[in-house]
Structures are given as C-alpha cells and as structure tokens.
Computed example of a mutant assay.
Amino acid sequence: MEERVEERVVVLVGYDGAELLDIACVTTSLATANRLGASPAYTVAVATPGGRAIGCDSGLALQGQRSLERTGGPLDTLVVSGGFGHEAAAANPRIVGHVRRLARESRRVASVCTGATVLAAAGLLDGRRATTHWRYAGRLASGYPEVTVDPGPIYIRDGNVSTAAGVTSALDLTLAFIEEDHGAELARAVARGLVTYLQRPGNQAQMSMFTATPAPRNGLVGRAVEHIAGHLDGDLTATALADRAGVSERQLTRLFIEDLGKPPGRFVRDARTEAAAHLLTSTSLTVASVAAQCGFGTAETLRQAFVGRYGTPPSRYRAAHGGPAA
C-alpha cells in the first residue's frame, strides 16, 4: 500500500545576489495553492548559507528560514534560485556540495533562471536538456558542454530535474508542479488567484516576438516589427514590408538578419505561430479561425508551422495545454 504523504516539503536555495522574484514566484504560488485547499499541503522554506539573511539583486534583504548546511531530506522539491550572484554561488564548493547532497534526497529538483548554473556545477544537468535565461544560455553551454542547453522554452522537464528560464517563468513551472501534484483544477484556481495566464506551456518561447529584448537597433526594423505585431492577418510578405519601409527587399532582409538574427519571412512566421499558440490556449476559436486571425490563411498552413515550431499539430497542442474546446 502506498504511503500517505502528510506534507510536501519544498526548499528554495538562496544566496547573495539571488533574484527575489525567482523565489517569490515559487513561494507565493505554493502558498496560494495551500489557501485553496492543496492536500497534502506544501511546507516551504528558504535555505541560505548559515541560515543568514541574503542580499537580493533588488537591494532588499531576505531572511533565511533554514541553514543550507543543516537542511536534510527527504524533500519533495528542491529549487535553486537564479540571480546575478549565480556564478559566485556556482563557484562556492559548499553551496554546490549541499545542493548536490539535497538533490539526492529530493523527489524533484528544479532551478529558476540562472540557478541552472548551480545545478550544472553540481553535475545535476549532465546528459540532460536544460534551459536558463536567454541572455546566459551561451555562457552555460560553453561552461558546461555536457549539458544540452536550449535557450528557447520557458521551462524544460527532463526526468525529475526541471529548469525554468528567466524570472517569471518560475510561475509557469510552479503551476505545472501544482497540476502534477493536485490536478489541473487547482492549478487553474491558483493562476486565477494570481491573475496570470492559466498556464503557459513549457515549450512556449521565452521571449515574445513582440517584446523581444534587446529591441532592434535600427529604427526601420523597429517600426517594421511594430507593424507586424499589429497586423498579423495582413500582407506581411518581405516585398510588402520593404515597400512600406521604403527600402529594397534585399536591404530589409539584411537589416533584419543583423538586428534580429532572422529574415523577415522567418520573423513573421514565428510571430504568427506564437500568437496562434496563445489563442489556442486562451480562446475557444476553431483552428481555422485562429489560422485566419493570425494570417496563415488555411488551417493546413497553420498546422505545418505548428509542427515545425512545437513538434505537434494545433489541436494536440490545445488539448495538451488545457485550452478550451472549440
């Protein structure tokens, strides 16, 4: 007979230079789940070196609730936060050693943002696919070649180890944990309580095509991107965009590649696919209607774009991520 779990103990590892939002997204989501009836409830604590207060990126101090050195398992979930102090934490053998020790005593291990660097330093990402904040993905990949770094998704779950991308993606990963532990209904109730998306799928891109950072350096490209965002169902061919910008198609393509790393056609396709993913998971529009609103013209064209971007057709994507039926 399966042993009844009385509580789900969750420990977040913090250190000097940790990002407070990385921690709060997890703790607030789990506290909300408890208030809404999670059973067994989550017992959440922040563990820091020596149990002392840590200075967060924002300049605020956060008091540790447990000493990292004296924290022991079994744990339900171990989460390592990110922040500008992640490299110093990853270079600290005591922090890394205790993270490695606690991981062995945890059912589930996760990192938020650049906390993936600490997991990698502990050897916990070896042979795994992982993500981190897009700005630091190259550095993680070069520093830990045994880790398959994918900077695209907002979170990745590989076995019992999960890595979330930048900052607020911790919210999406935590909602996924709540759904796994207590079902979709509670996860949705938590999302509503936090006034956030019901839940972004893990394979959604970290950066919206419409709010990508850094912004285009070239003003012409920036204006073209703004036009694309507001006219997804319009004529967005490279020819039409070039005519609108008053340059040749060749010049527009060169400027897009220099600023955004992709030609106009690829940028438009990605933007339309991302917008379609949002509509599929947040509305009951038919696939054909979504295709029309996002400028794909036909459901088949949308299907091809979806399979290329997400590896699954639109209808399965909607079903897998809890979107409302058409």
Rank of each mutant, 00 (worst) to 15 (best):
T131K: 07
R157T: 14
G85C: 07
V96A: 08
P74V: 00
E274A: 14
S162L: 11
Q63K: 06
R108L: 11
E7R: 04
T253M: 06
W134N: 04
C25Y: 09
R139D: 14
E6L: 15
E87S: 12
S208C: 14
R101H: 07
S106T: 00
A116G: 06
G265Q: 09
H227T: 03
V109T: 07
G230V: 01
C294Q: 07
G51W: 05
E7A: 15
A103F: 07
G55I: 06
A164S: 15
Q206H: 04
G152C: 03
S39E: 14
R192W: 05
A33W: 02
F296K: 10
G297P: 08
R316I: 04
A276M: 03
R70D: 15
Q251L: 15
A205L: 13
A130S: 06
S29P: 02
P74H: 09
A121P: 13
T253S: 04
S248F: 04
T196N: 04
L124E: 08
D270I: 03
T213N: 12
L280Q: 12
V96D: 10
A164R: 07
S29Q: 06
R108H: 13
L186Y: 04
T174L: 13
V149W: 11
G59K: 02
A191K: 03
L279D: 05
P324G: 09
P40H: 03
R266D: 15
A41M: 02
L60P: 00
L62G: 06
H321S: 08
D76V: 00
G72R: 15
G55E: 15
Y317T: 03
G127C: 06
R135D: 08
A288C: 00
I156C: 09
A326S: 14
D150G: 10
R139N: 04
T77E: 08
R200H: 08
T298C: 10
W134P: 05
P313I: 01
T148W: 04
T283M: 12
T48E: 09
V147N: 01
R266T: 13
L241S: 06
R104A: 13
L279M: 01
V290D: 01
R316S: 11
E179K: 13
P313H: 06
I23P: 08
A238E: 12
E185R: 15
D270N: 10
T32M: 15
F84W: 07
G311D: 09
T163Y: 06
L12D: 12
T148G: 01
D57I: 00
I257T: 10
Q199L: 11
A116K: 03
V10L: 01
A164I: 12
V109F: 11
G37V: 00
Q251H: 13
S111A: 15
E300N: 12
L102I: 07
W134K: 02
L30M: 12
V79C: 12
S169R: 01
D158K: 00
R100F: 03
G230W: 03
V195E: 14
A240F: 09
E300W: 10
G97D: 05
L194H: 05
D259Y: 11
S284W: 02
D259T: 03
